[in-house]
C-alpha cells in the first residue's frame, strides 16, 4: 500500500476537494421555458438546459428521475414526463405537495433551476419491442408514464397492441387531458376511470378501480397468447400497483415483464444518503424502475 499521507503538498498536486465537489454537486442550470397548469394541484414545467454543450449531453430514458434544485428552497427528485428524444429539454409534472413544490407553484417562466441527473433505472423500452403494452397509471403515476407514452408514439411500429389504463380520484384530477386525442390517433387505446364523479355531473365515463378495466380487458382477449406476449408498466401508489400486479400475475403475465416505479424521497440520487432505501436497496441506483419480481423480494416495498 502506498503512503497516503502527502508529506509535501507538491507531491499531491495540491488539494482538489473543491474541484471534486464541483463535479459531485454539479447542477446544470435549466430555464423554465413554460409553465402549464394541468389541474388545481399540478403544473407541467418545461425546462431547457441553458448551456448548449450540456443540453446536447443531457439525455435520459423513460422512467428516470432528476433532482431539481431551487437555491435556498430545496432539492427533490422528480420523474421526467417528456419524450426521451428531446435532448436537454424536459417536462416535469409537479404536484404541490411540499416546500419546494409549493414555491415552484409561485415562480415565473424564465427562472433558472438546478438539475442533477438523470438518475436511476428506466423502463426497458427496447426489450419490450414486438410485444403488447399495458400502460397502467393511477393519479400522479401518469407523470413518469407519459414519457413511455411519448416513446411509444414516436416508435409506434415497434409495439403491437398498446392500452393505457388510467385512474384518477375524480374527473378534475385527470392529467394531460389535452393529449388524449393524440394518443388515440396513434392507435393507443385509452381507458379512463375515476374513483368518484359525484362532483362532476358531466362525467359520462367509467367510475371504479383500474383493476376493473384490466379484468375486462383480459376477459375480452382470453384464449390467445395475449398475456405471454404482453409487457406492463405500472405507475401509481403502492396500494394500486400491488393490486394491479396481483391481477396481472393471476392472468399469467410474467413478473419479469411487469415494471413499476417506486416513489421515495431521495436527497442525493447517488446512493449515499440512504433516504430512498427500500429494505437496503437504493431506489436511486437500483430503481426507481424495478420489475415486479424484484419488488416482490424487497421488504417493505409494498
Amino acid at each position: 500500500m502506498e503512503g497516503r499521507l502527502v508529506l509535501s503538498p507538491s507531491e499531491a498536486g495540491g488539494h482538489r476537494r473543491r474541484t471534486d465537489l464541483a463535479a459531485f454537486e454539479h447542477t446544470c442550470q435549466a430555464e423554465i421555458t413554460s409553465i402549464h397548469r394541468l389541474t388545481e394541484q399540478e403544473n407541467l414545467y418545461r425546462l431547457q438546459v441553458v448551456d448548449p454543450g450540456e443540453r446536447e449531453r443531457f439525455t435520459f430514458e423513460p422512467g428516470q428521475f432528476l433532482m431539481l434544485e431551487l437555491p435556498g428552497i430545496g432539492e427533490a427528485p422528480f420523474s421526467i414526463s417528456s419524450s426521451p428524444s428531446r435532448k436537454g429539454d424536459v417536462e416535469l409534472c409537479i404536484r404541490r405537495a411540499g416546500s419546494l413544490t409549493n414555491f415552484l407553484s409561485k415562480v415565473r417562466r424564465g427562472l433558472h433551476v438546478g438539475l442533477r441527473g438523470p438518475f436511476g433505472t428506466s423502463f426497458p423500452m427496447a426489450s419490450m419491442a414486438g410485444q403488447n403494452l399495458l400502460l397502467i397509471a393511477g393519479g400522479l403515476g401518469l407523470a413518469p408514464l407519459r414519457s413511455v407514452i411519448t416513446y411509444v408514439q414516436e416508435n409506434r411500429s415497434h409495439f403491437e397492441e398498446v392500452d393505457i389504463l388510467y385512474g384518477a380520484k375524480d374527473p378534475s384530477q385527470l392529467l394531460f387531458t389535452y393529449q388524449y386525442e393524440m394518443w388515440q390517433a396513434d392507435d393507443i387505446r385509452l381507458h379512463l376511470t375515476v374513483d368518484s364523479a359525484a362532483g362532476d355531473p358531466s362525467w359520462d365515463g367509467r367510475v371504479g378501480l383500474v383493476t376493473g378495466i384490466l379484468a375486462e380487458l383480459f376477459a375480452a382477449r382470453r384464449g390467445g397468447d395475449f398475456a405471454s406476449r404482453t409487457h406492463a408498466v405500472v405507475c401509481g401508489p403502492p396500494v394500486m400497483f400491488k393490486s394491479v400486479c396481483a391481477l396481472l400475475t393471476q392472468e399469467e403475465v410474467p413478473m419479469q415483464k411487469m415494471f413499476v416505479s417506486l416513489e421515495r424521497r431521495m436527497h442525493c440520487g447517488m446512493g449515499k444518503c440512504c433516504r430512498c432505501n427500500v429494505g437496503s436497496t437504493y431506489t436511486c441506483l437500483s430503481g426507481p424502475v424495478f420489475d415486479y419480481w424484484t419488488v416482490m423480494n424487497l421488504k417493505e416495498a409494498i
Binding site: P71, E75, C268, C274
Partner: peptide
C-alpha cells in the same frame, strides 16, 4: 452510519443561499 439529509436556506439578505448536508438517522 453515513445517512444524511440535505436542506437549503435562503440568506437574510435574499441575495445568497446555502445548501447544507447534515448526518441523519434512519
Amino acid at each position: 452510519c453515513y445517512c444524511y439529509t440535505v436542506s437549503e436556506q435562503a440568506g437574510l439578505d435574499l441575495q445568497s443561499a446555502r445548501k447544507i448536508k447534515t448526518l441523519y438517522s434512519c
